[in-house]
Amino acid sequence: MLLLLLYKRTPLATLQHEPVTQPIEFDHRHHVADDGIDCRYCHNTVETSSSAGYPATSVCMNCHAQIWNQSPYLDLVRKSYFTGQAIEWKKVHRLPDFVYFNHSIHVAKGVGCVTCHGRVDEMAEIHQGPDMQMSWCLDCHRNPKPNIRPRQYITAMIDPAPGQGTFETHFSESGSNTSQSPTTMNDVHSRTSCTTCHR
């Protein structure tokens, strides 16, 4: 039994760091780092909905009607656009079905994309950064302070390295005014009731 419990926590079972091959060779490095496209251009429901949103094929075609519009790499995109058949993107971060995760509240409270998803601008194929065990959720729900940033930096891929401090320490130390702290500004509190996530 102990072995089983241990196995469940290894990356073998949590699928941590496992690149997911998608039906289309979509490269986040190119779209985020080279083109400088904000996360929310494609994932445009992240601030208003539980799901960040997979872009509709029409969003791809906003640019790809003109760019790479002959490329065989994008055959599936054009096929989906003209037939209305959805592209079956593979889910990378999948929580158990009894967890009711909501993107919009995390973004509103100042949890940056990079905090949970890692340096997406450096990933060819997206992989799951954290192990997504309940203890990982609770670490932050018990003490959110180190992971809260001002809302205008929500999609910034800056990851304060260890020793360089977090947004929280940066803002509360540099400014004499502690009301500048993102935790205070975004009204962030610890949330550890079971019903916060489980219903």
């Binding site: 196995y7 073998l12 909905s49 158990p96 079905d97």
Partner: peptide, 23 residues
């Protein structure tokens, strides 16, 4: 035998439920 299993067929029966969520 578990090692060959995808996470989808988890031992917890509530892990995957017959319902709909976005996408």
């Amino acid at each position: 035998s578990l090692a060959g299993c995808p996470v989808e067929s988890d031992i917890d029966p509530m892990m995957r439920q017959e319902k709909m969520k976005p996408y």
